[in-house]
């Protein structure tokens, strides 16, 4: 059985989405105070959860691809549209700092009882409509592609995938070690 299996139906969506939502809620990511605390560097959970998940999944994909269990040519890898990708990222960072969520976590906040999560979600719709109106003026520069299709870090850095993965692991362990020191009782925001 070689993946991806191209299971595009409702059942696969519901099951995998359930797992996603369940983990996000149990990580505390329905709480906008916890999410924005990462952006004040007083709680490193967002970084730790995301980076751990990226490394675990990337290692599994690399191993599965090496064993011939996953055909990476049929796995979606986004391309770089430099200004769109970078400024879009800035928009999501600012949006979280102001409103407390991202598109996924506002659903988790809403489903754990938070009305502000619903308002944030409606705001996402409004921002999407504003983008729809602005699109003719920004598509030429925001969606100009940089580099080859599906450009990866190993290609960009001319390094083997295992070395890139080791580098990411070093960042996680380093940041995790540095931020573990300041934890414990008595921790306060200055």
């Amino acid at each position: 059985m070689v993946g991806p299996l191209q299971l595009a139906g409702p059942v696969s969506g519901l099951i995998l989405g359930f797992g996603f939502g369940f983990v996000l809620e149990n990580a505390g990511f329905g709480d906008p105070k916890k999410l924005t605390a990462q952006l004040r560097l007083t709680d490193w959970s967002v970084f730790k959860v995301m980076f751990t998940a990226i490394i675990v999944c990337a290692v599994l994909l690399t191993i599965a691809s090496g064993l011939g269990l996953v055909d990476m040519k049929r796995v979606f890898v986004p391309s770089v549209y430099f200004w769109g990708t970078l400024l879009g990222g800035v928009g999501l960072g600012v949006g979280m700092a102001v409103g407390g969520y991202c598109p996924g976590t506002c659903v988790v906040g809403l489903m754990s009882g938070r009305l502000d999560g619903l308002i944030f979600l409606l705001g996402v719709g409004a921002g999407t409509l504003i983008f729809n109106g602005a699109y003719p003026n920004i598509k030429f520069w925001a969606y100009a592609q940089t580099g080859p299709n599906a450009w990866t870090l190993p290609q960009l850095l001319h390094l083997p995938a295992w070395l890139v993965l080791l580098g990411l692991l070093a960042v996680l362990v380093g940041v995790g070690g540095l931020t573990a020191v300041s934890r414990g009782p008595g921790k306060r925001e200055a």
Binding site: G91, I119, G123, G127
Partner: peptide, 19 residues
């Protein structure tokens, strides 16, 4: 929340994806 959501919605289309 409404302002942050609006900035986020615009940014997510700009980046062709979210967090």
């Amino acid at each position: 929340a409404a302002i942050g959501g609006t900035v986020t919605g615009f940014g997510a289309r700009m980046a062709m994806g979210c967090t």
